[in-house]
Design a protein around this nucleic acid. Structure first.
Lengths: 205, 205
DNA sequence: TCGTATACGATACGATCGTATACAAGGGCA
DNA sequence: TGCCCTTGTATACGATCGTATCGTATACGA
């Protein structure tokens, strides 16, 4: 039943399916997979429960589809930054990430929630982040932008943690810092600090 | 009904109550609050479901009690490190944390899970961590161990993220790194890397 | 225009959820 | 001894969970 006559069958299909994905992503991110019910998701999407079964087979199938879409977004997000080098690339990644978070806040919070529950999707997501950061570190070493005797594995892990950290803190950010971790002002300060840390540190030896 | 005649009423009480707390902590950490059922918790503790109501009023009450105990443990953990200065204190914190994780692995994973769900308990926990790191940074500044023009708020946040990061990655660690994040070898490398980062960074400017 | 496949909604089903109730055993005290 | 409070188990209750089923509406090819 198209909502208006101009919609074709195909767009209606995609719309309902996509509405379910967006609603699921939002509620999984907000309350966690277990706490978010299929009725709630269907209600938020404005469709009936049965559609989840039709399109995704089950609640778990819906999650898998959401995982695919979000992982794809992260790939796009990081591909641009990985073409650059040095702290400039990190700045670029932060910049893109901020733009992405403003546009798709639910996707970020979904990543956060997914990492909390150990699923094949979250494992894939983390592996991908690690891979990206490892390539970044290796590339910088080849170009001589790395200091001597750096533990490259840990450098990559460090970058992953630094990327995920703000997302983990985000739900508490308003209460603790008075604004989102991805607020312009916050990002500017964080970016400046991290830039300094990776090049000079902040403590005397 | 004591399980054996040598147990007094009091120790039986404490044992059953504490067994519920330990089982709840374990299952909340493993599957998340929503996915862990009261029957499952009671079964793991080896008591009947009704005891949760008797001792904690409800499932939520049980969580609050677990929160209190875990927060108290974190307090103890950090109090020793906060009496020291410089990178030495960080090493000390890492050392204590490792010993604590080996002893109370569930507690760490519970912290991780609690941070994923935004509850009063998790908010309190994060606030406490931030407070500890802020004091640490301020103390180091007073003693002249901080470099000039450091954004102290972000330095504290950075330390919190660095403290929580390994816990967040822990469930994936075996698959990605072949060992726990808190394995001796892992800790040694991480400690060395972080020590270097906070004093010199790892990239050329 | 008819036939068929698909999209969709309404509703029913069985399982499991957290909680409430009923009741038993034992300790402390009058 | 009689009473009460605590600790504890067993079980029942209503709600909600995810899923299955079925009827119908729509789209599209012959």
């Amino acid at each position: 039943m198209p909502q208006n006559a101009t919609e074709t069958a195909t767009t209606t299909h995609l719309n309902r399916r996509q509405r379910l994905i967006l609603a699921g992503r939002h509620l999984f991110a907000e309350k966690g997979y277990s706490a978010a019910g299929v009725r709630e998701i269907a209600a938020e999407a404005g469709v009936s429960i049965g559609l989840i079964r039709t399109h995704f087979g089950s609640k778990a199938g819906l999650r898998e589809e959401i995982d695919r879409q979000v992982i794809s977004q992260i790939e796009d997000l990081c591909s641009r930054a990985s073409e650059h080098l040095g702290t400039e690339a990190l700045d670029l990644l932060v910049e893109d990430a901020v733009e992405w978070v403003e546009r798709e806040r639910d996707a970020l919070l979904y990543v956060r929630a997914a990492l909390m529950e150990k699923t094949p999707g979250s494992q894939a997501l983390l592996r991908q982040l690690l891979e990206i950061m490892r390539r970044f570190v290796a590339l910088n070493r080849e170009r001589g932008l790395l200091q001597d005797d750096v533990d490259e594995d840990w450098a990559a892990t460090f970058l992953v943690i630094d990327f995920l950290g703000p997302a983990v803190l985000e739900p508490f950010s308003e209460a603790e810092f008075g604004m989102s971790m991805y607020h312009r002002e916050m990002v500017k300060r964080r970016s400046a600090f991290m830039n300094r840390v990776v090049t000079r540190g902040f403590m005397k030896s």
